[in-house]
Write a protein that binds this DNA or RNA. Structure first.
Lengths: 255, 255
DNA sequence: GAATCCTACTTGTCATGACAAGTGGACCTC
DNA sequence: GAGGTCCACTTGTCATGACAAGTAGGATTC
């Protein structure tokens, strides 16, 4: 383990919480105990605890020791980015049928989103995503060519493996994303793939994702059956909002 | 000004930034200067700067002074809660036509959301919301009776004043909310009010808001014209997500 | 003139010490 | 036993001092 002392302390505590060594509801070691453990002064120890507090992992306050609040902080970024990872985190089985993968010139809308010129080559991927074998979402993703060419390689099968896991292995840094939600009517393709009437309302997520420096790598137009998937924002006056994609088990799910 | 020193320092800096005394892009006073100003040690000063950094107000790093990044931190909670406040923050003119305000027994779905029994009395409010006189959203809001009775009072006109501002004055503490997004087809009422064909896709936000202790006060079913309003989530791997309601000026807005 | 080096200044990290404020339990009193 | 008091222990806040790491600009060298 490297880095500053306070980060090592925080990392160690995070691991102990995640592994259940420090179960939910149990108190953390007191500051003075942590100081002894690490032969550190209170500065780095308090900095580490402050980081965990900001992540929502621990609570507590003056006079009482910090309490473990939750064993795992939700990871909204990965959850919103990868359909298959999200499905598995819910204990459901993701599936997919790749309908088309093509290298072609970018349309205007795509070029705008990816900050390239109209006509520049991009790699487009159209997939039907399934949840427990039920048609759930039609995904039309466009990658800039430098990233997309990795997907055209012969040793990658988009029906077997997560695209994002594969791209991460290849060194593609996807770490910022912007999701815009609206509603659209199902076009004939959507309707036949999702097994709904043409014109039925679909929840559309348009996503642009890219590197930390803001360079866009992918643009996607995803259309969900609203009776299967919803998106949720939890919001409090004095806290950071949390966002999540939610699966709707019953036809008329409650809020 | 009261409270701990570091909070007073942070508050003072926030005010200086908000008032334009420290414009966007300009460097803050160095830590040592702040120490002199406040006759404080580096501890509280750094704690204050750290708070501003967490709020996204300032940037900077080792070796370079902190830079003002933005003069006002977005307030996603209020922005998502109050339509009129959101509209005004965009420089647009909100409008509204109250179609119905009634005291009646709760339906099943509403009772579930408000954690009351079916048949308990609630106050329902149906409003058409306008943006620059264009029909934008149909809002069907239900309040628990203790809150709703405030709206039935004669000295409140829902077409003149923000409901949330009024309720806040009356001591109603709305500070946590949960928003669930999906898509629905416009029913005949939606269609005629929003001036769209029946069956057209609408972006639906179902919102439950309540007190900090989790007691629900209102449940709302809001249906937006997707060509006017979208919702956006900005997401980064190592940062808290930010959420916003967005106005779509052009018929085919870009991402 | 251009590249390099050096230096003053900045923030990041950590140690040590001190006191205030709040909690919870042991203890005592009634 | 009920209630109040006291005290040890916790975290919150702040001061002081030190060194590391990074930046930016001037001085030096080529």
């Amino acid at each position: 383990m490297e880095g500053p002392l306070y980060q090592r302390i925080a990392e160690d505590l995070r691991r102990r919480i995640a592994r259940g060594d420090l179960p939910v509801g149990s108190p953390l070691p007191s500051e003075s105990q942590l100081c002894e453990e690490w032969a550190a002064s209170r500065g780095p120890v308090r900095q580490a605890l402050s980081a965990l507090r900001a992540e929502g992992l621990i609570g507590g306050g003056r006079g009482r020791p910090p309490i473990v609040r939750t064993s795992q902080v939700p990871q909204p970024f990965q959850t919103l980015l990868s359909f298959s990872r999200w499905a598995r985190s819910l204990g459901r089985t993701p599936g997919q049928r790749t309908l088309e993968i093509a290298r072609r010139p970018a349309r205007q809308e795509v070029a705008d989103a990816l900050a390239i010129d109209e006509g520049d080559f991009v790699v487009e991927l159209v997939r039907l995503r399934l949840l427990d074998d039920r048609p759930t979402m039609v995904e039309r993703t466009t990658f800039v060519e430098s990233v997309g060419r990795l997907l055209l390689s012969f040793d990658f099968d988009p029906d077997k493996r997560s695209i994002y896991a594969y791209l991460a292995d290849q060194g593609v840094d996807l770490s910022v994303a912007r999701h815009v939600f609206d509603a659209v009517a199902a076009d004939p393709t959507d309707a036949s793939l999702l097994e709904i009437p043409e014109g039925a309302p679909l929840l559309r997520e348009r996503r642009r994702a890219g590197s930390a420096s803001g360079e866009p790598y992918e643009y996607s137009d995803d259309r969900y059956r609203p009776d299967v998937v919803t998106f949720t924002i939890e919001n409090a006056e004095q806290a950071h909002p949390s966002v999540a994609r939610a699966w709707r088990p019953a036809p008329t799910g409650s809020l």
